[in-house]
């Protein structure tokens, strides 16, 4: 960065301008009006359609009910928050809908109605509105809400909440794959079943296939950067691979780690949130790598079977540092001060 003090033109000792004054404005001078917040959010909504469809196929009306509760509560909270702030309503940019959808898809089918409501109020209220609204928040709002209810209602969101032995749907009678891996009990489903999504779990996370379809759409539309999901999944694979080498007898291989739990869902839909991820490409790679490593580390070493929520919140917290470390050097610019 050149150290020009503000907009003051260079002035010599006798008070006359050294150089002819030109009107200099920072770029970009041409900008596309196409890439609005609303378009971005609508892209995310389109990308979530296969995930939502798969959730509906697996969990039937439970899925739509849960997601509906979250979306409606998020919209109401957003409306209330923006009216308190005295700003114009911000429902039109659909960001609250996206938060509600992602939050709903991250909850188990069995969670009671108040879990979704509390999670949504906390997500929009404490995750976003207290920081000043969209674009100002440090943490991913949906994950703030998810973490709040995860700790508050441990019995409704713990590993046992997913399982109903008497349920009519077959997948609901089994433990989630990650819980099975954690307790080394029960059978771990086959890789193909996990990939397609024929397994128990939170609403949106079961089908890696659906997440990949939606995620590819997002990346091709450039509504999400591809570096974050790629580096996240790659680093998760590396860490899981090291764990596998150290413990070769475990039935839970690297591929199992990649296709179970919310890793892929988070990689494409949660980590790529443009507000809470780094600005630079190098930073995005670091961010994704940290996420993947943390997710697998929490899975392996903590009491929780899945680590996406805490991994995302932890990495969100270091995004400002990553941004500072990875400031790109302009061509011909001064060397960065150490």
């Amino acid at each position: 960065m050149a150290s020009a003090p503000g907009n003051a033109p260079a002035i010599s000792q006798n008070g006359e301008p050294l150089e002819p004054r030109l009107q200099v404005a920072p770029g970009p001078h041409l900008s596309s009006t196409g890439l609005s917040t609303q378009r971005l959010m609508i892209d995310v909504l389109i990308a979530l359609v296969p995930v939502l469809g798969m959730a509906f196929y697996l969990f039937r009306w439970f899925a739509l009910l849960q997601v509906g509760i979250c979306v409606v509560s998020c919209l109401v909270t957003e409306a209330v928050a923006s009216s308190w702030r005295g700003s114009k309503p911000t429902l039109g940019d659909a960001s609250a809908v996206v938060t509600g959808l992602i939050l709903g898809l991250s909850l188990p089918w069995s969670a009671p109605w108040y879990v979704g409501v509390v999670a949504s109020v906390v997500a929009i209220g404490f995750g976003k509105a207290v920081f000043g609204g969209l674009g100002q928040n440090i943490f991913n709002p949906a994950m703030v809400g998810r973490a709040f209810v995860m700790i508050s209602f441990a019995s409704s969101l713990g590993a046992t909440a997913y399982v109903r032995p008497e349920a009519a749907l077959e997948i609901l009678t089994q433990a989630t794959p990650l819980t099975a891996a954690k307790e080394l009990s029960g059978s771990v489903p086959g890789l193909w079943a996990l990939f397609v999504g024929n397994a128990n779990g939170s609403l949106g996370e079961t089908s890696v296939l659906a997440c990949l379809v939606g995620g590819l759409y997002l990346c091709l539309r450039r509504s999400a950067v591809w570096q974050i999901p790629v580096s996240m999944i790659a680093s998760a694979a590396v860490v899981a691979g090291i764990a596998n080498l150290l413990m070769p007898e475990t039935p839970f291989t690297v591929l199992h780690h990649l296709v179970s739990g919310a890793l892929v869902f988070a990689a494409f839909f949660i980590a790529t949130d443009p507000v809470t991820s780094p600005l630079t490409t190098r930073g995005q790679v670091i961010f994704g790598a940290g996420l993947g490593a943390l997710v697998v580390a929490i899975r392996l070493f903590s009491n929780y079977p899945e680590g996406v929520v805490f991994a995302v919140l932890l990495m969100n917290a270091v995004v400002p540092l990553i941004n500072r470390v990875t400031i790109p050097k302009p061509l011909g610019g001064l060397p960065a001060e150490a």
Partner: peptide, 18 residues
């Protein structure tokens, strides 16, 4: 009745005070 256990944990102190 379901209660927000988080509120009696340290994060709840910051949320309530804030």
């Amino acid at each position: 009745f379901p209660t927000l256990i988080l509120m009696i944990l340290p994060p709840g102190a910051f949320l309530a005070l804030g």
